[in-house]
Structure formats: C-alpha cells, structure tokens
C-alpha cells in the first residue's frame, strides 16, 4: 500500500465522517449550530401531564419552539417555553398541552390569539387553558375512526364540492332551485292546495289519510321503509364508491350533476312537474282524479298494498336498490 494513497484514503474517510456528523447534526437538531437567541415564555398549568423538556411548542401545528424546562412554582407547575424570536405570540394567545400520540409525545399548542393584539415580550407569562384529555384520546382511536373520517370526507366532498369547478351536488341543486324559484313557488302553492284538500278528507288521498284503518296499513308500510333504510346504511360504504364515480362524472348520475345538458333536462322536468301539479289541482288526469274523486278510493287502497309489497321486496334486494334509495334520498 502506497503511503500517500493510504493518507488520502484516511483523509477521505475522516472528511466523510465529519460530513456525516454534520448531516446528523443538521437533521436531528434542526440546524441550531450556535444556540441562537430565543424568546422565553412562561406557561403555568395545574398539571403538566406528560410534558417533558425538549417537547415541541407548536402554533397551528407548526413547530415554533420547544419546552426548555419544567418546574414547580408554588402550587402550580410551570413550563418554560423557548420560542423562535421571529414568531410573535399574541398577548391574548392561549397555550394548551396537547397529546400527540397514545404513548407520550405531548406538545404545547399556542393558538393565534386575536389579530391586532400586541406580541408578548421575552420572559412574559402566556395565558393557558387545560384541555380535556378524553377528547384528544378519542381522536386517536385509530383505525375505525380514521376510516369513518375518510369516507365521510369523500361524502361531504361529493355533496358540498371540494372547491373545484362546478361544486358539489348541493350547490348544483341550490342553483337549480334558485333558477327556477318562481316555478317552484307556484308548484308549492299547488301542493299546498292539494294537502289542504287531503286534510279536509276530500278526494281519495284525503280519505286515505283520514281513515284509521288505512292509517294502520300505512304505518306498517312506514315500518318496512324504516328497516329498509337501516339496511341502506350498511351500503353507505358502497355508495361512497359510487359517489366517487359521480364526482368524476361517470355514470348517469354523474352526468346528471356535471353535465349542462342534464341540468337543462332537469329544468324541463321541473317545468313538467309544475304542469302536472297544475293539472292535479284542477282534477285533470288520473292522479288529479285520485285526489279530487272520492270514487277512486278503493283502487288507491289496492295501490298502497302494492307499494307495501314492493317495499317488502326492496328489503330483500341487493346494494343496487340501496343505492337507488340513497340517490333518491338525495333528490
């Protein structure tokens, strides 16, 4: 082995070591080479719980300092916080101890305080609040909770939109309704008239509502609907998948929500509904007759029995039907 070569290798090796020590240092201590000047704040608590020296101090989740020291001061416990002097802490900001994991890992969370408040000077005492432990614990329940959150998240995204073009279903419907408000108003007036008649026992539907025997049968039907709805819940997960499809514009429902043409169709349908309700009010057509003609009472009874049977069948059917229910519920 050549001596100069050996020297070179040792030199290289040593420099590599120095470089790696430096890298380790930079990554593990966030690059605080020389103890830079920090801001000190005192936070007094009834109980510091699991808080230790060196734990993080975070504002809105961003690390802004660390716990330098914990101590007892009279009848309370104090945590001395070292804060990055570049981060002003509002004088009305409140510090709380937050548990970031099930096993240890606490940090001090400082809220933003109010906007115009002056910042706390070095060495000042910060306001504190104690946090209920259980809440943070509950949020850590883990697997189930997280899954639930995820599915609810995509649900609400589908319904409310995720801020991207077009918005969610609710926004679309909202727009649809406000665009057609005059027509909807008229429809509502007609519906009011119809329900008035029903209330007074007029027409087939009125009889239907006011007849106690029929009432019992209806009740049974409603019970069936309820149990069906309970089953429907089980399929919420599946619905989530379909909602994703809806969001990406796939399938008929997706097209309906995201396609301008479908929206126009929907408007037309609403116009038709108005026309139908007008007719209903005037006793025109089959349904109008049903509402206005007491003679049709008997056939209505038969129809309701059929609905009942349909609902029975529904409770036995698979996810597709359930999705149908969910989708129907949305509209």
């Amino acid at each position: 082995m050549n001596t100069t070569q050996q020297t070179a290798r040792v030199g290289l090796f040593f420099l590599l070591g120095v470089a790696l020590v430096w890298v380790t240092f930079e990554t593990l201590s966030d690059g605080k080479i020389f103890a830079e000047r920090t801001h000190t704040l005192i936070a007094g608590f009834d109980d510091l719980k699991e808080l230790k020296n060196g734990d993080d101090v975070r504002q809105a989740g961003v690390k802004v300092g660390s716990v330098q020291l914990t101590r007892l001061a009279g009848r309370r416990a104090e945590a001395v916080l070292q804060i990055d002097p570049k981060v002003p802490i509002a004088s009305d900001a409140v510090a709380t101890i937050v548990m970031s994991g099930l096993i240890g890992g606490n940090y001090v969370a400082i809220d933003m305080g109010s906007n115009g408040a002056p910042s706390l000077p070095d060495g000042a005492e910060i306001r504190t609040a104690s946090t209920p432990d259980l809440n943070t614990l509950m949020s850590e329940i883990g697997g189930l909770g997280k899954q639930l959150q995820d599915s609810l998240g995509s649900f609400s995204k589908a319904i409310n939109g995720d801020g991207k073009a077009g918005g969610g279903i609710i926004q679309k419907l909202d727009k649809l309704v406000s665009d057609n408000s005059s027509r909807v108003d008229a429809t509502m007036a007609n519906l009011q008239e119809i329900t008035g008649k029903i209330n007074r026992g007029e027409g087939t539907l009125g009889k239907l509502v006011n007849d106690p025997k029929l009432h019992d049968e209806l009740l049974a039907a409603v019970t069936d609907i309820r149990s069906t709805a309970a089953q429907a819940k089980e399929f919420v997960a599946n619905a989530e998948g379909i909602m994703d499809q809806v969001k990406s514009g796939q399938g008929p429902l997706g097209t309906l929500v995201y396609d301008q043409k479908s929206a126009d169709d929907l408007k037309a349908s609403i116009a038709n509904i108005r026309a139908v309700s007008d007719k209903l009010a005037k006793g025109e057509g089959t349904l109008g007759k049903l509402i206005n003609d007491p003679g049709l009472y008997n056939s209505a009874q038969v129809t309701i029995k059929k609905v009942d049977r349909t609902l029975d069948g529904l409770s036995d059917s698979g996810p597709i039907t359930a999705v149908g229910i969910v989708v129907n519920a949305l509209f």
Binding site: F13, F14, L16, G17, V18, L20, V21, V23, T24
Partner: peptide, 13 residues
C-alpha cells in the same frame, strides 16, 4: 479517538 466517531456516525446512519 479520531476514528471512532467516524465509525459511529456511519454505523448509526
């Protein structure tokens, strides 16, 4: 004394 820290930092990483 000089080489041990180098070995250690490499071992750690």
């Amino acid at each position: 004394l000089v080489m041990m820290p180098v070995l250690i930092v490499i071992a750690n990483i």
